[in-house]
């Protein structure tokens, strides 16, 4: 598999951060602590799965509205549940549908109206944020059901939380689809060369549309589970995922130009970013310092990948 060399880079980064973190504050690399980190990483990880879909589909595909989708998904879920265990499944369905609708709008804008993805998803972010403010008046709104909170954050099995299992499940499913399904083959073909894809009879717009729908749906689901973690929803709950999801995709070795990459790399990227974030906490690095270190990390990974031979 050609992908292994790419995965080696984020893997090495993870080990390095763990070693440095353990040296700085003993216990950082202890299993319990690592599992906690994985729990935090899993929300970002779910969003990264969606972001990877859109970026793989090429055509300068990117989704800046993942944060808004997370927020809206969480808000819808919180308001449907409002603390009631019985409403968990309806809430799940409602936030999934919300996500699908966002993706449909994004996908139609990009594929049919030919609006650049960057602009389209930035625009839909604005609209969704407006809706969020309108619905909440800027206050927290909706409550997680007790059962959902029990399933998401506390250790479920072998000390690992439910959300991590779910992340692994969704990631494995996405990987299976990418490598073993007609849709997966078509997706990377469209990303690698859309004109050639059209000439073998693939429907480029439909495939890209599906990628956007998938991305927003997974993001809204991340929002659904996020409310199980935080308990309640505030408007900007998803904002943190916009840039981090893109950085994680890049760290995972997926080409921003589309057509090459995968979900395993993206998952490792999400872990790298989460660990990096927490290793900086005991160092008392101020927010500006963290931002700088994130930026430098991204550039460092780009340099590493830039040195690889072109063909993968």
């Amino acid at each position: 598999m050609a992908g292994f060399s790419r995965l080696a880079i984020p893997l090495i980064a993870i080990v390095a951060i763990l070693v440095v973190g353990e040296a700085l504050s003993p216990g950082f690399a202890a299993p319990r602590q690592v599992f906690n980190q994985l729990t935090v990483a899993s929300f970002l990880g779910l969003v990264v799965i969606g972001q990877t879909l859109v970026i793989l589909a090429g055509g300068e595909g990117i989704d800046l509205s993942v944060g808004a989708a997370v927020s809206l998904g969480a808000l819808v879920a919180g308001n449907v549940m409002n603390g009631s265990d019985a409403m968990i499944l309806p809430a799940l369905a409602a936030s999934a549908l919300t996500g699908a609708a966002i993706g449909l709008v994004n996908g139609i804008g990009v594929t049919r109206l030919r609006i650049p993805a960057l602009v389209m998803t930035l625009g839909s972010t604005g609209v969704i944020t407006g809706i969020l403010i309108l619905m909440t008046n800027g206050k927290t709104s909706g409550r997680s059901a007790e059962l959902l909170s029990q399933m998401v954050a506390p250790p479920l099995l072998f000390g690992i939380s439910g959300i991590v299992y779910l992340w692994i499940l969704v990631g494995a499913l996405a990987t299976f689809v990418l490598h073993k399904s007609r849709f997966g083959y078509s997706l990377v073909a469209v990303g690698a060369n859309e004109q050639a894809a059209a000439m073998v009879g693939l429907s480029v717009p439909w495939i890209r549309l599906a990628a956007y729908v998938g991305c927003s749906s997974v993001s809204a689901l991340a929002g659904f589970f996020l409310i199980g973690y935080t308990g309640s929803v505030f408007v900007s709950i998803g904002n943190q995922f916009v840039l981090t999801s893109i950085i994680a995709v890049v760290i995972g070795g997926t080409a921003l130009s589309g057509g090459s990459g995968g979900f395993v790399g993206g998952a490792l990227g999400a872990v790298v970013l989460t660990l990096l974030q927490s290793v900086l906490i005991p160092l008392n690095v101020a927010e500006f310092g963290r931002q700088m270190i994130f930026g430098l990390t991204l550039i460092a990974f780009m340099v590493l990948y830039g040195r690889e031979p072109k063909s993968t």
């Binding site: 399904s181 849709f183 083959y185 078509s186 990377v188 690698a192 050639a196 073998v200 693939l202 090459s260």
Partner: peptide
């Protein structure tokens, strides 16, 4: 380059894609 190959993908994928685009089965 323009209408034929998927340059960053494998020989297998390049060969299989026309068949897959016609296939009705969702799995490969």
């Amino acid at each position: 380059k323009r209408y034929g190959t998927f340059a960053i993908r494998s020989i297998f994928e390049n060969l299989a894609i026309a068949r897959l685009a016609q296939s009705r089965s969702p799995l490969v």
